[in-house]
Amino acid sequence: MVEERLSRIQACLSNVQDPELPFLSITELGMIRGCEIDQNGTAVILLTPTYSGCPATDAIQDDISEAVSEFETNFRVKLVHSPAWTTDWIDNDTREKMKRHGIAPPDGNSADKAFLLGKERKVSCPRCRSANTKMISAFGSTACKAHFQCESCLEPFDHFKCI
């Protein structure tokens, strides 16, 4: 009974889209940290923000409430900060999906501090696969992205920052 209730919520959450990356679900981005029933029988959905100030977090909470309230009345969304969100939680299938949508996915894992040591990461172009790219700006269209340009095909593209 409990398991059925939780798996129904989990399934529903995997259909809630990220408002800024609508081809990805919040589950694929690793933002759902779990779902449990508390002692009052309330289903608690644990959500972690990607960045502290990400303006999409409020919209995502509303979207979750709207989707889950279609079949569940006793639930709440709880924002959790620990452990801090990392791009390591994004799996390979999701990274491939990003590429298909023109976004260079986070490369490798966050333990690689190349960028912080002043060495530029090699980010390959999601369109032509060329490794000959340059960073235009460390900050991009959203908190989670940086702006790059391919020197081979000249296309500008977003790179999902690795944190």
Binding site: P49, S52, G53, P55, H81, S137, A138, F139, H147
Partner: peptide, 20 residues
């Protein structure tokens, strides 16, 4: 433009920290 976006992005992160 890039710097405009960068400063706003930093502001947004700081605002998120302030809220918490």
């Amino acid at each position: 433009l890039e710097e405009d976006i960068a400063l706003s992005n930093v502001a947004l992160d700081l605002l998120g920290q302030a809220r918490a």
